[in-house]
Design a binder for these strands. Sequence first.
DNA 1: TTGAAAGCGCTAACAC
DNA 2: GTGTTAGCGCTTTCAA
Lengths: 338, 338
Amino acid sequence: MVTSKDVAALAGVSQSTVSYVMSGSRSISPATRARVEAAMEQLGYHPNASARALAGQRAHVLGLVVHVTARTELAGVLPFVETVTGAAREREYDVVLVTGDEGDAGLERLARRGIVDAFLVMDVTRRDPRLGTLARLGRPTVLIGRPDEPLGLHWVDLDGRRAGELAVQELVAVGHREVIVLGEPVGEPGEEHRFIADFEDGARQAAERAGVPVALVRPPERGWAGVLAVRDRLVEGARRGGLVARTPQVAERVLQLLLEAGLDPARDTALVAMCEDDVARRLRLPVTNVSTESRPLARRAVDALFARLQGRTDLPDEQLVTPVLTRRTTTPGHPDRP
Amino acid sequence: MVTSKDVAALAGVSQSTVSYVMSGSRSISPATRARVEAAMEQLGYHPNASARALAGQRAHVLGLVVHVTARTELAGVLPFVETVTGAAREREYDVVLVTGDEGDAGLERLARRGIVDAFLVMDVTRRDPRLGTLARLGRPTVLIGRPDEPLGLHWVDLDGRRAGELAVQELVAVGHREVIVLGEPVGEPGEEHRFIADFEDGARQAAERAGVPVALVRPPERGWAGVLAVRDRLVEGARRGGLVARTPQVAERVLQLLLEAGLDPARDTALVAMCEDDVARRLRLPVTNVSTESRPLARRAVDALFARLQGRTDLPDEQLVTPVLTRRTTTPGHPDRP
DNA sequence: TTGAAAGCGCTAACAC
DNA sequence: GTGTTAGCGCTTTCAA
C-alpha cells in the first residue's frame, strides 16, 4: 500500500506537505506542489479513508435513511437516491444506505461510531417516530417530508397545497365544471404524510374558489381492487368533468378504465396526474402532470445538509419546493393549445 | 466521546482487554468480561469505526454497484438493495452505494482508499466493461448477472433457460398448442444480458420439445408504443394460444390489451409473466408467474461475498438460481386445478 | 488469562 | 512556505 509517507519521500518533502497539498488548507509553492503531485501520480497514491477520518474527525460519509413500506412508490425512490449520491460525490462524500430494519438503534450506531457525519431521511411522516432520536443524536440532519413538529431539524418537501391547486386549476381552465380527486385508500392513515393532506386541501380549496364541485373519492383498498371498486363513480365523473390522480399507478389504472368505458381521455374528459415528467410521457397517453420534482428536491436536501455540515446557520430551516404543471394530451381544449 | 480507554479505566483492565472482549478473539474470564460489559453499558460506549478500520485493515463496508439505465426496472432494484443491506448488517457490515456516474474511477477510489472491502455489482451484462477494473482491483467481488467472461469473478444469476422453459411448459400443460413470447424491443441489444438470451432460448426449446410453434415477438420500441404496435399479433395469438411476458410492465400492458379486445385472460387465453410474486398477485388479475427470486438471489450473492471475504475458496465460482412458477388465474384449465 | 506498547496512515497544531 | 511532532481510537503482537 502506498502511503503519504512514500509520496513525501519521493517528492522530497514532509508528510504534512503532502497532506496540505491535498487539502489546500495552506499555501504551497507551485514547484513543491508539482513535485508532490508528480510523486502521487507516479506511485498511484490513494489516501486512506479510515486514517483520514480518524485524524480529521470526519467520515466523509452521509447516511441516507430509506424506510420501505407497502406504501412506498418503489420506482420513485431510485432516481432520488441516485441524485443524492451524485450530489454527495460532488462534495467528496459517499453515501451509506440505512434501511428500516435496525430502527433507531441503527441511526444511533451510525452516528456514535462515526460511520456517518450526517443524515438524510426520506419519506418523513407528520409524526415520524425517528425524529426524537435524530434530534438527540445532534448530527446535521435533513428530512424529506414535513413533520408536524420538526424538533429543530431541517426539512424539505414538495408544496402539496400548490400541487393540488395546480391540478384543479388546469381542469377548470380547460372548461370542466366538476372535479373528482382520487384520494388515499380508506382505512389507511393517508394524513400520515403532510404532503397528501395538503394536496387534498389545495385541490378542494381551488375548486371552491372556482365555484366548482369537488368529490374526493377514496378507494376502499390499495391496488387494482380499490380502483375497480370505485370504477362507476370515476367513469360517471369523467363523463361530466375532470379527474385528478395523485400517483402514477392510479393514473395508469384510471386511464385504462376510461379507455375501456369508451372514453378518450384526450377528447371526452380530462386527467391530471401527480408524477414525474418522464413517467407522464410514457403512460399510454402523454398525461398532463404535476411534477414530483424528486431530483430538485433531492438536490435541495443535499445542499441544506452540506450547509449544516459546514456549520452555516444562515439558512431557512424549512423549504417547500414548488411543483410544475405540464400540459399534455389529457387536458384537451386548453385555450393555449386549441 | 467515550473511548475504549475510558471503558478500560472504569473496568480496571487494559485497553486491549476491552478490544478482546469485543472481538472475541481470545478467551476472557467471565468476571472480567462482565466488568467490561458493564462499563461499556454504563458509559454508552460505541467503538469508533475509523479507528477500528485503520487498525484492523477492514472497513466493514461493502460497495453495492447500481448502474441505473433506461432499461432498469426501477421497482425491482429496491427490494434487492434492501435485502443486500439487511444481509450485510447481519455480518456487521454497512453498504455504500455506488452509482454509475463515476465509472471505473469510482470503483478504484473506493477500493484503493479502503472505503469498501468488497463489491457487489448489480445488473451485469454479458460483456460488462466494468469487469476488467474489478478483476484488477483484486477485492472480493460478486456479480449479479452472468458475464461471458467472468475473469475469475464470482457471479450469481437466475437460470434464464429454466425460466423460459417453465413458462412455456405451463402454457402447454393447460392445453395451448401455440405460444407467443414477447421479447426485447428490436434495435436494443437484448442479448446484452445473458439471462434474457437464455430465457428466449429456453422458451423456444421447450416449445420445440412439445411440438408446439413459438413466435418471438419483438416490439419495435420500448414502452406502451412498442406494445401497441404489435397489438394485433398479440390479440390474434391470444385467441389461438398462450402468451409469455418477460417483465411486469409488459404483462400489465398485455393484460390490458386482452381485456380491451374482449378476451378474458382467466378463461379465453393464457398468460405467464416473469415477475416477483407480489407483483403478480397485484396485477389486475392474479397472473401466473415465474418468479424473479430477487431476494434469494441477493442473499446468495451476499453469502458468496462473505465467504470470499473470509478467505474461503471452497465454493463454486458461479451459481444459477432456479426460478419457481406459481399458478394463478391466467393459466386456466390446468389439470391440477380443474 | 491479562497487560504493555507499537503501530495503522493521516491531520493539524506549533514551530521556524 | 515548509518541517516536526503529537495525536485520532483502535488492533495485535510480544511478554508475562
